[in-house]
Design a protein around this nucleic acid. Structure first.
Lengths: 338, 338
DNA sequence: ATTAAAGACGGCAAAAATGCCGTAATAAGT
DNA sequence: ACTTATTACGGCATTTTTGCCGTCTTTAAT
């Protein structure tokens, strides 16, 4: 058995093992594989599944349900060094995507957040920075959550003297689409050059499949964004993420985007045409690309203003109801000062 | 013709076109393709070359020399949107690798540099930071170049009030190996955790093939390094780069590494064993991985010390003779102060 | 219940990618 | 000039992938 075949088999086992007992068919497996860098057509997956079945590593459940991994299969997976076979980076990214699997749905539920920590005394200044960013729709959605000291948020407790700002992470969108059965692939995180409030092109890109750290986080820390400038003049550089879905699912996706906007969760910057490159980024035949705002753009503005601030993306889950529109928060905050 | 085949053909044409009139055989082309993300065996390359020959896009030169691209081929390449076919990111990375093609050789020649700009008044402090970094061998080589205001370096002129510090870029090593006919692939840039002055593992990685910006540069700007700590305690986080060569060439490479050390250009942190993972990073069958110090580590230390400093990697070429050992520079500098 | 629709299988064969290997053209050494 | 080593080619056969398509289940709707 060639090196390649063995990698394919291992990867298939791995996908099945992550499905937690749910059986899956070749099509689903193929999608999953694609999102972690292994491209195999469904037919090819079936080809390998047949082998694996015969070796007792997977078992055929039913014509409708597909296959499951067997205990022997799990054992085999343990023996095979997945990192070695499927690729180290992919593996790390996998855990990352795993974290983004939970999600909201049309009405409520929990969504994925980013958290930034600021010293209490910097909050007023931070607000002043945040407001125009949201007004210009450069963030993901239009809601955020202010967390006072010693309250807890997304599983963390805010330390004394600090205030937390929870923003909505753009992978929430992935969760929503996934829940609707649309297989979405995050391809790149990058910096988009804006001119007259419109995206022109990506000036930098990092493939999600080829990195262990969230690209947008890196760009912001590295001080490569120009969110404030974009707010002021309409020209600047903001964080964004390039994603792809099957062109067939585009109509359905558009509907979902609209629904999200109604929840103040809109964040789609621009949508490409089927199979056509978008902002110079090519997409595969049969797929459509679109660009989503970086959920951290508001935080980037704070950093750019020189306000000390620590932050992290994909921090955890919080119910939708905990987030409020900036205007509302602002009013509350003003009242609390009185 | 499938999408994949057309990509393969375009990629082959692209490689040939970059060879500037020199003919090449399938083996060489295959190597080049590999280093920009397209994996095709030499036989497969020949398969496509045959097609291209028939279509007049390439021409057979001789049994010994291989093929060249024809004017028609170049035209075709112009028509085909290379970015679209071969991948946007790859293309950007290509230009980057292209820049690293020139190099030193056993005695002298030009090498590839990074440049940092500091305010004149910060120079003394910067020296104090640089010294221990080089003493601990955390930089690439043991030489650097101090460039006074308005002098020029690597094609740039240092602005008034500033001093430039030129360090040796670790891609110089690629150039040297390449010149010796060893095909080397840069796989990842990342952060290595050091304990007791020994590398333990990569804490972060970014694939060179999947990014438009130099990963190490990003990590340093993002403030994710701990070079000073490593200098002081032997434990810390430094920038490094993971590269691979064919296992067969390892002996030859070791010799070259030794020669480079004699020129104070040593920078190899650790070398793996054939086909074995190194610091948890797996390598392909028949290849050997090794880790090279980030040429920017000394600059990272300066940044960590809070000294304002702008810098860039792969800034340009400078003759070896322009670099001197830190001790020598230090002495000169002291004299100049008198 | 009965029927229709969706999803999954695997046989068969075509398309792609390679492995093996004998032959040809050079380069280098004697 | 002659021999040897090196490098590249392309024919042929194999191995991998993948497309096409008829069949079988299961779910959902009538």
């Amino acid at each position: 058995m060639s090196d390649k075949a063995s990698q394919a088999r291992t990867a298939i086992l791995k996908v099945l093992s992550e499905l937690e007992g749910h059986p899956a068919g070749a099509a689903r497996i193929s999608e999953r594989l694609a999102s972690c860098g292994v491209t195999l057509q469904p037919r090819t997956v079936r080809f390998y599944l047949l082998q694996l079945d015969r070796e007792g590593l997977t078992s055929f459940i039913s014509r409708r349900k597909g296959r499951m991994i067997t205990p022997a299969g799990r054992e085999e997976l343990g023996r095979a060094n997945v990192l070695e076979k499927v690729g180290f980076v992919q593996a790390k990214v996998d855990t990352l995507s795993y974290r983004m699997s939970l999600n909201v749905e049309s009405g409520d539920g929990e969504l994925i957040t980013n958290v930034a920590l600021l010293k209490n005394q910097d909050i007023s200044r931070a607000f002043a920075e945040l407001k125009p960013v949201f007004e210009r729709n450069l963030g993901m959605g239009d809601r955020l959550c202010i967390v006072p000291s010693s309250a807890s948020f997304a599983g963390h407790t805010i330390p004394g003297g600090y205030t937390g700002i929870g923003t909505i992470c753009s992978v929430t969108l992935n969760g929503v689409l996934l829940a609707a059965g649309i297989p979405i692939t995050s391809r790149f995180g990058g910096l988009v050059e804006m001119r007259s409030n419109r995206p022109v092109r990506f000036t930098e890109l990092i493939e999600y499949a080829g990195t262990t750290a969230d690209p947008l986080e890196m760009y912001i820390r590295a001080g490569m964004t120009r969110v404030r400038e974009c707010v002021k003049t309409g020209n600047g550089i903001i964080g964004a993420s390039f994603r792809e879905i099957p062109s067939l699912a585009m109509d359905q996706a558009s509907l979902i985007f609209k629904k999200m906007e109604k929840l103040d969760l809109g964040g789609v910057l621009t949508i490409g045409r089927p199979g056509q490159p978008l902002l110079d980024v090519p997409v595969a035949e049969g797929r459509t690309g679109f660009v989503v705002m970086g959920g951290l753009n508001p935080i980037a503005a704070i950093m750019e203003a020189g306000i000390a601030c620590t932050f992290g993306s994909l921090s955890g889950l919080e119910p939708y109801t905990r987030f409020a529109r900036l205007a509302v928060i602002f009013r509350h905050y003003m009242n609390s000062l009185r």
